[in-house]
Design a binder for these strands. Structure first.
Lengths: 248, 248
DNA sequence: AAATTTCTTTGACACAGATCAAGCGCGCGA
DNA sequence: TCGCGCGCTTGATCTGTGTCAAAGAAATTT
């Protein structure tokens, strides 16, 4: 853990890479200026805990760079990831004092934090921020419900394929090779984190990844870089109907 | 299916039993009058489908009476319930054309439907409706995430205990016997519906209910009426820490 | 009241995934 | 260069839950 975190932090909202997809997507210049007043950036190294469940949360914010996760833990140590936060995703709940989940940096992460009190005030004054947040929350709710199907009814192989297709889809715009069905991307999760997300053990995750590789559904370069020669095939393995994930 | 549905339908919002908990909780008299303009009540018998996934949805609304459920189905017939809608819960998504899930009446249901277009318009004009809806959506998101832990990491016995404690909690105000830890309530779900919610088969549901009964955690009168002599015990069986569910 | 249907319980057995255990391989510090 | 540690893979075995099957109980129709 001795790497220096020299993450590129945006100078202001204008040059923020997630501006058009985050809470502030609908904001005008003057509102962005207001947000600039109440925000600060914070970096976290992979593995660091950003907030502990139950802890007082003095900010809400957005992931700017990297991947973090929400996890719930039972007394006996069983863990379930309940959210995967990619760039532009919102963290924290206006109107709540304490965090309901552990928030962990899964890779190196840059967060854009808004001081909670002023942000809440601004939400009342500028209704379309609340409306934008409602949109985003509804999207998250849909994602959570999609995930309930994965957890409740899919086989281990389908779970892995589902996770891979979700990650692939989420940064499709960045990594898709134009004019082909072929994708490649880096897994931002360890096998253990994948297991926590999927409700499996890390051994089962490893076995199923090997199986998908053996069957030519995916390829691997190293442990973390994934090649998807045929995205439709991957979706079929995920148990989704052919275009469900990509086009819905 | 030949019962006559003589459900008591509220004459207006003023006498609506869920008024103070639903979307309209924060509305003033004039706003309620506006809502009265754009709403209508609709009744459904147990088992009926309220909306099919993919179908065009011309309303959003609230459950007034009874229980309905959101379900997702895979091509091969595997089903997962992704939401349990009790009185005051909101159905439908402003800004979306078609339903994302099947909505089914699990018991006889009365819905308060708002015509979608005018409701969306009203949401823009009266910001606190959007804010109230945001609150409710965030609550649902929390519930969904709680449920992900149940689906991903709990044993069959814990799943049953979790479901029972959630149902008990939701209508605690109605059925709690004052001054005791003892609850009783009617299950609004068939064994199959429970299985669909819990990611189990109905046989496993039946076996685990029998086991909980044998072990004195619950009692049964008929198949559907449940007695809970010791709520703490039930929560412990659910794998929640002692007061987690009830008081958090 | 008998017949039919639907919901539920219980049993026997199979199997997917968990658990326990060993070993690989790559990166990093010495 | 070596060795150490951590993330990952693979194997052997065990077990909780699914699957298949039969039959009981309750509600509804005839």
């Amino acid at each position: 853990m001795h790497k220096t975190m020299t993450a590129q932090i945006p100078r202001d909202c204008g040059e923020c890479p997630i501006r058009h997809r985050a809470v502030c997507a609908s904001c005008e210049a003057d509102e962005l200026a207001q947000l600039d007043e109440i925000k600060y950036y914070k970096s976290f190294e992979a593995g660091q805990t950003i907030v502990w469940s139950g802890e007082k949360m003095e900010f809400v914010g957005s992931v700017v760079k990297g991947v973090s996760s929400l996890t719930q833990t039972m007394e006996d140590g069983r863990r379930q990831m309940v959210g995967l936060l990619l760039p532009s995703d919102f963290v924290g709940r206006p109107g709540r004092e304490t965090a309901a989940y552990d928030v962990t940096a899964t890779s190196d992460v840059v967060m854009c934090c808004f001081r909670k009190k002023p942000f809440e005030k601004m939400m009342v004054q500028t209704p379309h921020i609340a409306q934008r947040l409602l949109q985003m929350t509804l999207d998250e709710l849909d994602a959570a419900r999609e995930w309930m199907l994965v957890l409740g009814r899919k086989t281990a192989r389908e779970k892995i394929a589902s996770l891979l297709s979700i990650i692939a889809r989420r940064d499709a715009t960045l990594h898709m090779k134009a004019g082909s069905d072929s994708f490649e991307f880096d897994l931002p999760l360890t096998r253990e984190a994948m297991a926590d997300y999927l409700g499996l053990t890390l051994e089962t995750v490893s076995r199923q990844i090997s199986a998908l590789k053996r069957d030519g559904v995916i390829g691997l370069q190293g442990k973390r870089h994934v090649l998807v020669p045929d995205f439709e095939r991957l979706l079929a393995e995920a148990g989704d109907d052919a275009d469900g994930g990509m086009l819905a």
